[in-house]
Computed example of a mutant assay.
Amino acid sequence: MSLLLVDLDGTIRKPLSGQQYFLHPEDQEIIVGADVALSTYKDDSIIVGITNQGGVAAGHKSFQECIQEQQYTLELFPELREIYFCPDFEGRKCFRITRHNVHNHSKTKWSGHYRKPGAGMLQLAMVRHKQIPENTCYVGDRSEDETAARRAGIRFQWAANWLEQHQGIIAQVADVQ
């Protein structure tokens, strides 16, 4: 079993409204092919979402709205086991969202390093799922994602390349639908 960590915003989801930020928790749509790409890993990988949520600290959304947003993402992507998010600019706080619970992981040795490009959320996910860097990959769309992966000592794949890698399967699914 391996661990696939995926960034959320710009990698597998985007605002349905077309705005820069999600206007409400359900203002989300799946980036074309992201759901199919994730489904190819469901049998042999633990799949976990990783996301900075500075919109909470910036006042664009409440903490509760952020939790609801992540829970809706878990509905959109049943392959995701859970989502880790950092709501503050200092990287001190980290919350793990599952389909039914919110877990506070802010008081760990990674506090102060949760916000990407810090590697805290990635390291916490590896420890929680008993995975080593060699069995872990992080997919993202920003330089902060790549830096976080490098700092955690794990492989990184750019979201565009990752989706392109799965184009044949995505096309087959589109033909069936």
Rank of each mutant, 00 (worst) to 15 (best):
46 I>T: 15
73 T>L: 10
173 V>D: 08
27 D>M: 08
8 L>A: 08
171 A>K: 09
126 M>Y: 04
174 A>G: 06
31 I>R: 03
151 R>K: 13
96 R>D: 03
73 T>D: 05
56 V>L: 00
76 L>I: 06
148 A>P: 09
143 S>W: 11
107 K>W: 07
174 A>I: 07
155 R>A: 15
167 Q>G: 04
175 D>I: 12
126 M>S: 02
50 I>Q: 03
62 S>H: 04
111 S>D: 10
129 H>S: 03
70 Q>P: 02
118 G>F: 03
167 Q>Y: 11
11 T>G: 07
169 I>C: 05
132 I>W: 04
43 D>T: 14
17 S>H: 10
151 R>S: 14
8 L>Q: 12
6 V>E: 01
11 T>F: 06
136 T>D: 00
75 E>W: 06
131 Q>H: 10
145 D>Q: 11
121 M>T: 08
100 H>D: 13
10 G>T: 09
79 E>W: 06
98 T>D: 14
103 H>P: 00
106 S>D: 05
114 Y>N: 03
124 L>D: 00
51 T>H: 04
160 A>L: 13
1 M>I: 05
152 A>W: 02
12 I>M: 08
41 Y>H: 12
146 E>S: 15
103 H>N: 01
145 D>A: 12
126 M>T: 01
47 I>H: 07
58 A>C: 08
55 G>R: 08
69 E>D: 15
140 G>I: 07
9 D>V: 01
148 A>I: 06
15 P>E: 03
86 C>T: 01
169 I>D: 08
68 Q>K: 15
101 N>S: 13
126 M>D: 02
20 Q>M: 12
53 Q>E: 12
61 K>C: 14
114 Y>F: 15
97 I>D: 04
163 L>M: 10
11 T>P: 08
24 H>T: 07
164 E>N: 10
23 L>N: 09
83 I>Q: 04
150 R>C: 12
101 N>M: 09
111 S>C: 12
80 L>H: 07
24 H>M: 06
66 C>V: 06
136 T>P: 00
71 Q>E: 12
17 S>I: 06
27 D>V: 14
60 H>I: 02
69 E>A: 15
89 F>Q: 03
76 L>Y: 09
103 H>E: 05
84 Y>W: 12
55 G>T: 01
143 S>K: 14
56 V>T: 11
170 I>F: 09
21 Y>E: 08
71 Q>M: 13
76 L>A: 07
102 V>F: 03
52 N>Y: 01
136 T>K: 01
102 V>K: 11
75 E>M: 07
128 R>L: 10
136 T>Q: 00
140 G>K: 00
159 A>W: 00
142 R>Y: 13
71 Q>V: 04
145 D>E: 14
46 I>G: 00
74 L>A: 13
90 E>A: 13
18 G>R: 14
109 K>I: 02
113 H>G: 12
171 A>D: 14
93 K>P: 06
86 C>P: 03
37 A>Q: 03
